[in-house]
């Protein structure tokens, strides 16, 4: 079994693969049959679905970047607090391009077995995206 520090390194590599859009690198750190309870509907299960989602994201949000703000690891799980930023250039996920950028917070938890991520739960401030792009009233706007 990998140690919590080794598991954090796997999560850093996972995030780096996304940020550099090196999807082949995901094969080294993500199990092919990864379970993703928070996956958007309409995508295939497993790593294949993750890659498809990432291709769609990069196509619509070419400058998408995830910064790991904190990692908390215990046993076979790692939790990440993240910041996600992007400037939508094409309609995707119900978000049209407005010329504006967004920066939102999120968190995810992964479970690791045999050196690979086998389960992923994630939540992010999706409403914050709509508010920052001016598509929804902000909490203070009346």
């Amino acid at each position: 079994m990998t140690t919590p520090e080794e598991n954090k390194a796997i999560v850093r590599r996972y995030q780096e693969a996304y940020n550099t859009n090196q999807l082949d690198d995901l094969d080294h750190v993500v199990a092919a049959d990864i379970k993703t309870p928070a996956m958007l509907p309409g995508f295939p299960h497993g790593l294949q679905g993750i890659k498809q989602l990432q291709r769609m994201t990069v196509d619509a949000w070419p400058d998408a970047h995830v910064t790991i703000e904190d990692l908390i690891a215990e046993g076979d799980r790692v939790a990440a607090r993240i910041t996600v930023s992007a400037t939508p250039q094409k309609e995707a996920f119900g978000v049209p391009p407005t010329g504006k950028s967004f920066k939102i917070g999120g968190m995810y938890i992964v479970r690791i077995a045999n050196g690979k991520i086998v389960e992923h739960w994630g939540v992010e401030d999706a409403i914050g995206i709509m508010q920052q792009l001016g598509l929804m009233p902000g909490p203070g706007a009346n």
Binding site: I72, A73, E74, G75, M107, I109
Partner: peptide
């Protein structure tokens, strides 16, 4: 619950 150091997730 996932705990490390002074944090709990």
């Amino acid at each position: 619950l996932i705990a490390e150091g002074d944090k709990v997730v």
